[in-house]
């Protein structure tokens, strides 16, 4: 009778201790993150509180990015693949565009879906995006194609603008932007700032720790 009680107590203590260790290792980063509204890749309004109960990895980027964002999404694809099915169901990979004018929900869905259909692309009004960026103390800055002096390295295939879509495409801008990966716990608190240089196994351990909190 006493033995099962002692074992139960020990298990409870070890869980409490593990959570305490994790809380120390991944303290809440106050001032980074918070509740926000956006538009999901299906064009529906979404509140960040809908992610409650799930661990979230949040990244900023845009679809005209050729090097950083595809690499980041490739990294997140590997990260997600390292989780079990059950862990995947309780984890959300969220990609917030910093170029909502160009990255419409449909466009974002096509881009993000190339990496993983489960990934969530968020767009919105410029005000919504700027608010999310400010919540996470992130930054972005347009770097217009037109501002780039090409000199010798230049286009060789002149483009004819036959319709408005092509004109819009050509006006698409390039940006510098924050590449931090924000790890949020099940309550939506930011617990860790990671980047694509974090070994995938190490990142997975942190996600698991938060899932088991």
């Amino acid at each position: 009778m006493l033995k099962p009680m002692l074992i139960s107590m020990l298990i409870c203590l070890s869980v409490v201790n593990a959570n305490h260790v994790l809380a120390q290792a991944l303290p809440i980063l106050s001032g980074v993150g918070g509740a926000f509204s956006a538009i999901d890749a299906d064009g529906n309004a979404i509140e960040s509180t809908e992610f409650s109960g799930n661990v979230v990895v949040l990244a900023f980027g845009y679809t005209n990015c050729a090097d950083i964002c595809p690499f980041t999404l490739g990294y997140l694809k590997r990260l997600y693949a390292g989780l079990s099915n059950e862990e995947q169901q309780r984890t959300r990979i969220v990609f917030v565009t910093i170029d909502p004018e160009y990255d419409t929900p449909g466009h974002l869905k096509g881009f993000i879906g190339h990496f993983n259909k489960d990934f969530i692309g968020l767009s919105g009004t410029q005000e919504q995006i700027d608010y999310i960026v400010s919540l996470y103390q992130a930054e972005y800055k347009p770097l217009s194609v037109l501002d780039i002096p090409t000199q010798n390295i230049r286009r060789v295939n002149p483009k004819l603008f036959t319709n408005n879509q092509e004109l819009k495409d050509d006006k698409a801008s390039l940006y510098s932007h924050t590449v931090t990966l924000y790890l949020l716990d099940k309550q939506g608190y930011t617990r860790s700032l990671e980047y694509t240089g974090t070994p995938v196994d190490e990142f997975i351990d942190k996600i698991r720790g938060l899932l088991n909190e």
Partner: peptide
Amino acid sequence: APAVANNTA
């Protein structure tokens, strides 16, 4: 690149 992308590396 993804089918919708206009740029790649």
